[in-house]
Design a binder for these strands. Sequence first.
RNA 1: GUGGGUAUAGUUCAGUGGCAGAACGCCAGACUGUGGCUCUGGAUGUCGUGGGUUCGACCCCCACUACCCACCCCA
Length: 430
Amino acid sequence: MAGVIKAVRGTRDILPPETALWQHVEQACREIFHRYGFHEIRTPVFEDTQLFARGVGEETDIVSKEMFTWEDRPRAQSEKAQSLTLRPENTAGVVRAYIEHKLGETGKMQKLYYIGPQFRRERPQKGRYRQFYQIGAEVLGPTSAGSESPARDAEIIAMLAHLLREVGIKEWTLQLNSVGCAGDRVRYGQALREALAAVKDKMCADCRRRAETNPLRVLDCKVPEDQPIIESLPKISAYLDEPCREHFNEVKKILNHVGIRYEINERMVRGLDYYTRTTFEFTHGGLGAQSALLGGGRYDGLSEALGGPKAPGIGFALGLDRFVLALQAEETVGVPDLNPVVYVAPLGQGMNAEAAVIARDLRKKAIAAELGDETFRLKKSFEAAERAGARYILFVGENEVASGQFGLKDLKSGEQATVAREQIAAKLRG
RNA sequence: GUGGGUAUAGUUCAGUGGCAGAACGCCAGACUGUGGCUCUGGAUGUCGUGGGUUCGACCCCCACUACCCACCCCA
């Protein structure tokens, strides 16, 4: 076939039966979020490019080289074209909406969650796509509403542990860190740079480069020979100011009390500029190199950076694509059964019409029924029922219609029954 | 953006410089009222795309594209 059109690079179709797993995760999230007081927000898939430049950070990899950006057509000749971007993440959009609708004026703390596609122009890989799906939640509000409290950090993390258990993912690790406030990070970056100047020549090529461009990234290096050197570098914890240190201690104290296991990872560096204080990441072993299942942290200055009021916040995003991969790796997951309960088999000439009525009645009674096409061959009916994945087969033939008694067979146990028309639904439920 | 690997039937994969293959699946029949067995027959396809070498290329060479793995980065 000439000129077949295929899904573009990094995008994919998610087909049944895998979509059942996606629904399973989405439903579990909605259910758990609701219990923790979160409500859904839906923001646009594209935004003004400036939102991400200012929110996520001009210098981040995401903004500097991974965004799908284009120029809109100018509304008038005198106007400049607006630069638009497919959202590479959703936190900036949520905070934009918070500011735009003056949600802070309610005085309440906002607890919002979202589910939707995000877009980054990266090289595709296992667990990484150009259109990928995130589920995330954000808590933000005026300081007076308590949004800055370490209790919120711990609550979010506890909710995630709860969620993972509910969904069926057991093999996870929680990494925790505090990156302090903006001032702390500048001082720490400076200290790192100075410390690296003395030792970077002994390190790998990547690290020598990072020492100049982004010293925090050196901490992420996995080269074995570099590990002793990295261990000897200054630690972020030594550069936190007193309020940040206090805040972090409180988060840890609550987590300990609630019984959530975590590892402090002072080398965990997150690539979005808006993070302050608490940052965390849940990882999973079954994901290959892209082991981060979900990640998040506090962003106390984001609202102000976007021209809004002071509105401390904390949130996370989980990668739905990776969640499903992890779920598949865990094996023990109960996938919802989407198969029809019964296959309605028209048997003999002119039975389609009769079968259609019976199938409709069953469906009205909330029974998932698959309707077959009339055939004379019993074997074909069985094969079709099997293929449809049905548990039962119901025969609709001349004899049945005449007598009002229908043959019903359990394909799993082989058990057979003759059932009056009105009793079919009840029998199938029982 | 960089490196490595892969691309043959619906699927999983063999294969050889000279007629395109297996298994499973699919379709039909034996076989029109309780199957799942068996037997018989059938179709599987621009061998990823475009060039080149050659009498001849699915095979060798080049380019491209896509996918996979890893780096980078992130969810």
